[in-house]
Design a protein around this nucleic acid. Sequence first.
DNA 1: GTCTCTCCATACGGTTCCGTATGGAGGAGG
DNA 2: CCTCCTCCATACGGAACCGTATGGAGAGAC
Lengths: 223, 223
Amino acid sequence: MAVRKPRLGRDDWTAAALTAIGEQGLAGVAVEPLAARLGTTKGSFYWHFANRDALLAAALSSWDETYTDAILRTVDAEADPTARLRALFVAVTASERAPVEVHLHAAADHPAVAPAMRRAVARRTAYITAQLTALGFDQAEAERRALFAYATYLGHIQLVVRIPEAVPQGPALEAYLGTVLAAVLGNSKTAANSSQAGTGSSSGMAAGRSANSESSNSSALSP
Amino acid sequence: MAVRKPRLGRDDWTAAALTAIGEQGLAGVAVEPLAARLGTTKGSFYWHFANRDALLAAALSSWDETYTDAILRTVDAEADPTARLRALFVAVTASERAPVEVHLHAAADHPAVAPAMRRAVARRTAYITAQLTALGFDQAEAERRALFAYATYLGHIQLVVRIPEAVPQGPALEAYLGTVLAAVLGNSKTAANSSQAGTGSSSGMAAGRSANSESSNSSALSP
DNA sequence: GTCTCTCCATACGGTTCCGTATGGAGGAGG
DNA sequence: CCTCCTCCATACGGAACCGTATGGAGAGAC
């Protein structure tokens, strides 16, 4: 049981930084504390990285790969758009993801984080939008619902991380998420027109309806 | 145009702290920078407050009053539950609110912020839940939809603050918010049962339908 | 006018972090 | 064995804050 000196590499620092983001947010990406946690000193760090921003950039790149690329790749292997969206919902509400996502979104005003976050949000919503258009929604409605879904996702993980007691557990959580997914996929029937009945897709849910193409339903806000 | 020395009071510091939270988050609540901005020095601050945490507590108290109490009071003056929820939606998506809300939610891991935030979320969701039960939803469904609404609210203001270009503007935004409100109020028809009519409120929208009382619709997640 | 009480300015020490400088350990190649 | 090259430890200076100590400046009481 010797106290091996593992000789850290760039990747070790990057992984530690991502972990720290999940635990303490951007403030956790601090050279000296990370060095202490890795059992080394700043001397090591400044050998592998020019400065703190370089570490941050590496961590963000790693985040982009594992929190967007990998997820979308996996999910995209599903058979049809509905299955893909469902798989996306399930994958994305896995609790290990939440802390890093929440902390990074919370730091989206940081100059290094902002562009990465913009890119990630754009890619994610674009993917959802694509699935929805494939289901028959017109572009505007698909974008609306994709944004709706993403906002709900954001709020949800934020509640899970910050106010966990506000979020149901176990089967109640699944029921809740089912309701949410149904709201995104289903016919929300916001205005008076478009009252065609629902074409249930094979897997039981209402999906695939070209909804009313905007204009109409601001009536919900202005009586 | 003499350089009047306005002789600051406790409230000036508190207001400045809340403003700083809106601009820079909790980190903006720093004694020396605030003093500089107020044109004074730390000597003033430590006369009015014991320490930084005391200022934070005062700012959080002020936030509670103007960002929850006042809003709920105003909104509750509306005639019926539907109108109250609609007014709440409108009031709460007013853009001046968003930055403070987002930054405070992002700091909900701070020991001073956590209890205030827990309390605020509990009160807000409880209010929404009460309106929904008044519309005929049973308790479980009302809670589910209230949480759904709150999560969407959270995600929305976060996007508005962090990635504003992802959120539509003007009429498209109203259409979007109309869709969201309709999704919360409307019958999302996730399962097959439950078709009793609701106590329709006067103001026009489809609302007040007692939906299915859970158990059923986790089918949306597990095909 | 002088006293006193409220409020603020200045100066100091302490903490935590960033970044630099410099001097080794320790193994791979010769 | 010696050398070089990679990697790390230690020591230092600087910035940004927090909190304390202490000495006034100003305005009302009398």
